[in-house]
Design a binder for these strands. Sequence first.
RNA 1: GGCCCCAUCGUCUAACGGUUAGGACAUCGGCCUCUCACGUCGGUAAUACGGGUUCAAAUCCCGUUGGGGUCACCA
Length: 480
Amino acid sequence: MDKPRVRFAPSPTGYLHIGSARTALFNWLWARKTGGTFVLRIEDTDQGRSTEASTKVIIDSLHWLGLDWDEGPEVGGPHGPYFQMQRLDLYAEYANRLVSEGRAYRCYATREEIEALRQKLPEKKRDGFVYPHLWRDKTEADWIPGAPYVIRFKTPLTGTTEFVDRVYGAIKTQNSLIDDFVIIRSDGVPLYNFGAVVDDLTMGITLVARGSDHIINTPKQILMYQALGAAVPEYAHMPMMLNPDGSKISKRSSGQHGVDVAIEDYRLRGWVPDAVLNLVARFGWSAGDQELFTRAELVEKFDWAQCGSVDGRFNVKKALWISGEHLKRLTDEDFAARVHPFLAGAGVTVAADDPRLLPAARTVKTRSARLIDAAEAMAFYFRDEITLDPAAVEKFLTPEAKANLRAMADVLTGVADFSDAGIGAAIEAWLAERGFDIKTVAQPARVALTGRTASPGLYEVIAVLGREVSVRRLRAAAGE
RNA sequence: GGCCCCAUCGUCUAACGGUUAGGACAUCGGCCUCUCACGUCGGUAAUACGGGUUCAAAUCCCGUUGGGGUCACCA
């Protein structure tokens, strides 16, 4: 059996949507698992909305996710070009073939003309209005030289079109319900359904996997394959990814639900690529009770048979949990290197080779959901001047506590072994000598050293900060 | 509205005719503890409804209800 050829065919009208990323991922997983070929094709026929900038953003996002393609932009391939606007001649050739074979026809009716016809109908019937077969039965003799026309597909009037989706199972449609849709615009540019079919056909795509919003297009496309005398590919549709309230995920809804839409946003917020892949993989797909997957495990375990057909709602907390789990699995060194670029955003300048970077990062690793959170949590280590949280000052920096902070500063000044353990031992000895419980000094010290009431462990904070800074901050908070 | 699709804890899901309906996130409680996390132990929580088929139904069939998709010279 031949190896599958799958594709991801985004239209460059914005960013890489989280749902599209899943479509790309599932196709990629299938290709990698089966040793097949993953094709990237840019569907830029919507000239009003397609931009080069968007093409770049989408390609960058795919690179960032690590979803590499075997054929497509940048890498080329035997079936190129991989931008639809560079394939116009091909579409014209196939369209003309359909016309000459009587499977499609020129339609000179204008949009206005058709709309006027629709308006003539009683209001109730306007909803289900389909193109009346104005030009369906005309011949070449009726063509109007020089006038603009579109090419419409001559949809069979009877019969049903059926296909077995790898996710949804059997789906059938009455052909009589499908109108004679336009395949080539008056400017010669193909419409989605036709461009996709000609490309999938000429690129040898054997399995078309895409979002379930395309289920409705599938019968039309199958009809075109048949009219072209070509073998129909397999189909696999994936359920929609929705907001927590069931609405569509969009830039606009993002603020409302906290659901990031664009893959660049995930990168900017400090997700690691594998966590994003893990996140989207679990929408509509599962492997028993397993929740966390590495990229390799995804490739190994992915199968269409385990894909469900239920639309999924985004769970922000679970998403953050997945991100955090992936962060925890990074080595300390890797984690530190990845969090470094985010420190600037948290307002501190830290050199990549700053010796405090690794130990500081280590203390926030299990406390952060994303790198941006980690950077924010560890910024206090690097500030020249920290701002103390007023409420915390009010609550913990009492005169008595300040006296203890001064004493603690003195203790630290004398600690020989300035490590976690050494510091802990010295402070605990001091505490024992005074008969204090650590609870009486921990929170005031934490506020003095970090500015806040929540932080990594006290001893590790002090160790990372170093003797000089720790002592200075304790004394400053004590009012010296 | 027509057509298509979907329906198990709040959310994501497991189950592929026979289970005390399992797991994860969230939530609640305990442990750990210098705070916050992490970790750990335990609890609450679901087969939308109504009919069939069957010895047996979350699983198969029909209907109802609810949700989504789609009805362009967008993709």
